[in-house]
Simulated scan of single mutants.
Amino acid sequence: MSPSSWFSRFLPKATPEPEQLTIAHAGDTLSVTFVRNPRARRASLRVDPANRRIVLTAPLRMARVAAVGFAEAQAGWIAARLGRLPERRPFVDGAEIPLFGVPHRVRHRPDARGTVWRENGEIHVAGRAEHLPRRLKDWLTAELREQLVPLVLAKAARTERSVKRITVRDTRSRWGSCGPDAAMSFSWRLVFAPPEVLDYLAAHEAAHLVHLNHGPRFWALARALCDGPIEGPQAWLKRNGEILLQYGG
């Protein structure tokens, strides 16, 4: 055995690339994304509303036929969950979007100069139609930063901790995060949520500056930092989270 072959025995095995599966059900075909996870102990299915797909996760050692068989046995559940996903809500002329929870109508203004502005319950987007989605998203992201950043900094000041940086980006698996280095990230789609939801998420991540867990002391601090009860915003996100992920699609 060559030295390189001997050392390779002790290197971690690469996780296989995701695989697209087709599951038959009631005369239809369902698309499932199959992934391997070294931390998984058993096969599982989850909904990925941001990408409008079902993800099948299996341990590295599970036989492919066993994992696929598990998904096939759950075909009815897969079909039902895909059928319940909210419709896409693309950024087009005439679309209605909730700016911080308040409905606004999108108006394309090809004859106007400038970029994006708000007027009488409408959001006007100038320029060519193909640029509308990008320009509107950029404007919405800037609007969110204007509201969210001062809110987060104010709550962080109450913990007597500082924030390294705050980014707003297209995060799809969580609404906000705070790392050990005090760097925070938020989903730009929070621009569609009402103010009390932003307040709750700002309090939640600011509490992580002190407690990098979800233990009792963390929740006590998060409640203290929030301007109102946290149960309402939590329930709102649970009811509407999948809808927020469809805007701009």
Results as ranks from 00 to 15, higher is better:
114 G>Q: 10
60 L>P: 01
60 L>G: 02
195 P>F: 13
10 F>T: 04
206 A>N: 03
135 R>P: 03
142 A>G: 06
197 V>K: 02
93 D>E: 12
90 P>D: 05
181 D>C: 03
61 R>C: 04
79 A>F: 06
10 F>Q: 06
152 V>E: 00
62 M>T: 05
50 A>S: 13
133 P>A: 11
69 G>W: 03
145 R>W: 07
131 H>E: 13
244 L>A: 05
241 G>P: 04
18 P>K: 12
87 E>N: 11
231 E>W: 01
31 S>G: 12
204 H>A: 06
232 G>F: 06
232 G>T: 14
8 S>T: 10
126 A>G: 11
159 T>Y: 04
239 R>Y: 01
202 A>C: 11
11 L>P: 06
39 R>M: 06
23 I>A: 10
166 I>P: 00
222 A>D: 02
27 G>Q: 07
242 E>N: 14
136 L>C: 10
44 S>I: 05
233 P>V: 09
240 N>A: 06
133 P>N: 14
21 L>E: 10
137 K>T: 13
124 H>D: 04
120 N>T: 12
176 G>V: 08
148 L>F: 11
130 E>Q: 15
174 R>K: 15
138 D>C: 08
234 Q>P: 01
124 H>I: 00
238 K>R: 15
52 R>I: 09
33 T>N: 10
7 F>N: 09
182 A>F: 15
143 E>D: 12
86 P>L: 07
29 T>S: 14
80 A>K: 15
142 A>W: 11
